[in-house]
């Protein structure tokens, strides 16, 4: 039942149709981009492609040539075993939700969905919960039983104020001896400069990093009217204002913030996904996977 809470069958049915794409993403996109050192454990025929000058002659499929009198090159997808670490920001700021779902819940569902995908394709997946520090960690496992462990961890998480994403990223960069994938789920309401240093560190260590920037629709559009008292969730005081009067400035600041994060990610070849909690999770995940697949095929 715990599993069912996180692994919504509707989400999975939507994502499940993209199973092949997901497999290619986790094994190939990032790794292939670096001429993955993991190649050689197993290969699987993928497709034929017409020969172009420069292709190695050993890859020409002569049987096909004999039948068609044309040169085709055999393509293989490398099937790798990799380790993914899903880091979920469980700080107080993530408990904000203008609708039925908070950012933290959204992050949990999203992480669980991805974990399921990863484990299902026999890769290892670990999950870490953090706020100011790492509060809980499930080491990577490649069996589906990890899902219940992850669920229990997530259930027991108690949100605390003050996010320190950078510290957790540094810790992970140092802890992960083997290069792998790090997926971060956070609203990133922390020092942007420190966060950038953190993802720099991870990227430098050769990890593939994906940042899911989770924001509430109210945070994205600031649609409140009248006079409101805003109570900071991370012990950062209170503020009374008329949102309509500061909306333009707020949105400009928000855009600046997102652009700053996004450009830093781009510089460090980190995938950045902005997730609006009003958007269905499967749409965000499938959108990301499709986008990543498109990026990978270009490379």
């Amino acid at each position: 039942m715990q599993q069912a809470k996180y692994l919504d069958p509707e989400i999975l049915s939507a994502v499940g149709t993209l199973d092949v794409v997901a497999r290619r993403v986790v094994e190939g996109i990032r790794i292939g981009m670096h001429r993955s050192p993991l190649r050689g454990i197993s290969t699987e025929f993928s497709a034929y492609r017409q020969y172009v000058p420069g292709d190695a002659l050993k890859h020409i499929d002569w049987k096909v040539y004999s039948r068609t009198n044309r040169y085709y090159v055999k393509q293989y997808d490398a099937e790798t075993n990799f380790v993914a670490n899903l880091l979920i920001d469980a700080s107080q700021s993530m408990t904000y939700g203008s609708g039925k779902i908070t950012k933290l819940e959204y992050a949990k569902y999203m992480a669980a969905s991805l974990a399921y995908l990863i484990v299902e394709q026999r890769d290892s997946c670990g999950v870490g919960l953090f706020d100011g520090e790492l509060r809980g960690y499930v080491p990577p496992k490649s069996t589906l039983s990890i899902l219940s462990t992850i669920s229990t961890l997530m259930e027991q998480a108690i949100p605390r104020p003050k996010t320190k994403v950078a510290a957790v990223l540094h810790e992970f960069a140092n802890r992960m001896s083997r290069r792998g994938v790090v997926m971060l789920f956070s609203d990133l309401f922390d020092s942007t400069a420190e966060f950038i240093k953190g993802i720099n560190h991870l990227a430098f260590r050769g990890h593939n990093v994906v940042v899911f920037h989770i924001l509430d629709p109210y945070e994205l559009t600031f649609p409140l009217n009248g006079t409101w008292k805003f109570i900071g969730l991370e012990e950062d005081g209170e503020m009374i204002t008329q949102p309509a009067r500061v909306r333009a400035n707020y949105l400009a600041e928000l855009k600046r913030f997102i652009e700053e994060v996004r450009s830093a990610c781009a510089r460090n070849q980190v995938d950045y996904v902005l997730a609006n909690t009003a958007t269905p999770i499967e749409q965000v995940i499938s959108g990301y996977l499709l986008q990543a697949a498109a990026g990978a095929s270009q490379r």
């Binding site: 107080q92 700021s93 993530m94 408990t95 904000y96 950012k103 609203d187 309401f189 509430d216 945070e219 409140l224 009248g226 006079t227 409101w228 008292k229 805003f230 109570i231 900071g232 969730l233 991370e234 950062d236 005081g237 503020m239 009374i240 204002t241 008329q242 009067r245 500061v246 400035n249 707020y250 400009a252 600041e253 928000l254 913030f257």
Partner: peptide
């Protein structure tokens, strides 16, 4: 002004920056 509503808010830093610019004008 007295009858204001309240809400918890995560993006306080962004709001503070927006407000600093506009409070005098408001």
């Amino acid at each position: 002004r007295k009858h204001k509503r309240q809400t918890p808010w995560a993006a306080m830093e962004l709001l503070r920056k927006a407000l600093v610019i506009r409070s005098g004008q408001i």
